[in-house]
């Protein structure tokens, strides 16, 4: 889904705009959240109905029907949708950053924040909701496959989902906002790449579980890659500096300076 706030704003200096227009529209974000919520709720209900019923034995035909089908559908579907969004963002990129108006730039910063509202929202579902839910499964049943009903949801639906939004945020910034188009933003790359690396980190996780860890301890060093990569989310601090620093300038540039601007 696209929540572009400002890509079609005509270039015009703020001072010449007679009528105030909204800088940010919550609508697209709310729709995006609603859709994501429906997907996550659907996945949770699916787990509730079929995890213990058909998910305990990975060798059974029911497992193949109910769980492997979900796995085979969700991965290409999510990454395929993501690819479409990424291509859209790329091919509609701003090819003339130099002549961008302050107002357009400001709106695009709001647009970037909208993307981050989606990204952080989607990250929440793996980091908190389905993440701890994974313990519910693996600490209570016998693990017999890397693709358990819990993993099929938390790792192969939720992780691709936030990767889609993370990369989209990165692409939105680099294709539409001058500062991010002129240099690689270290915190932006960290905040997108770090959590994204959780997907390949699964290789280590499953290797350990396949060969030498017969029972589940969540706090085991085998799992420490997940929190460490999660910490890269802290890089949003650096991104806030880049974004808010420029927005503070743009507030003055576009909104004008207050008459009583002198410090008290």
């Amino acid at each position: 889904m696209s929540i572009q706030v400002a890509s079609s704003i005509p270039s015009a200096r703020a001072s010449s705009v007679p009528k105030e227009r909204k800088m940010f529209s919550l609508g697209p974000v709310a729709i995006g959240w609603g859709l994501l919520l429906a997907v996550y709720a659907g996945l949770r209900l699916y787990q509730g109905a079929f995890s213990f019923e058909y998910g305990l034995d990975a060798t059974s035909p029911e497992f193949a029907t109910y769980w492997m089908t979900l796995f085979k559908v969700e991965v290409p579907l999510i990454f395929g949708s993501g690819l479409c969004v990424w291509m859209y963002l790329w091919f509609t990129r701003d090819r003339d950053m130099d002549s961008m108006s302050g107002e357009t730039e400001l709106k695009r910063y709001f647009g970037l924040i909208a993307w981050f509202m989606m990204y952080t929202f989607s990250f929440l579902w793996i980091a908190s909701f389905f993440g701890e839910g994974d313990a519910t499964w693996h600490q209570t049943v016998i693990r017999d496959t890397a693709l358990t009903p819990s993993h099929i949801v938390v790792f192969y639906a939720c992780v691709p989902m936030y990767i889609v939004f993370g990369v989209s945020s990165l692409l939105y910034a680099t294709t539409r906002i001058p500062a991010f188009a002129r240099g690689y933003s270290l915190p932006l790359i960290m905040a997108v790449l770090g959590p994204g690396l959780i997907l390949p980190n699964l290789g280590f996780n499953e290797w350990g579980h396949a060969f030498w860890m017969t029972e589940e301890i969540f706090s085991h060093p085998l799992h420490w890659g997940f929190p460490i990569l999660g910490w890269t989310g802290l890089a949003l601090g650096g991104l806030f500096i880049q974004v808010i620093g420029r927005m503070a300038e743009l507030f003055k540039e576009v909104g004008g300076t207050a008459d009583n601007a002198n410090p008290a």
Binding site: D57, T59, D144, T145
Partner: peptide, 15 residues
């Protein structure tokens, strides 16, 4: 696919 109505009897031991 055909939905099989019998729930799985094993608890992962087959792996």
């Amino acid at each position: 696919t055909t939905l099989v109505s019998l729930p799985a009897a094993a608890h992962g031991e087959r792996a």
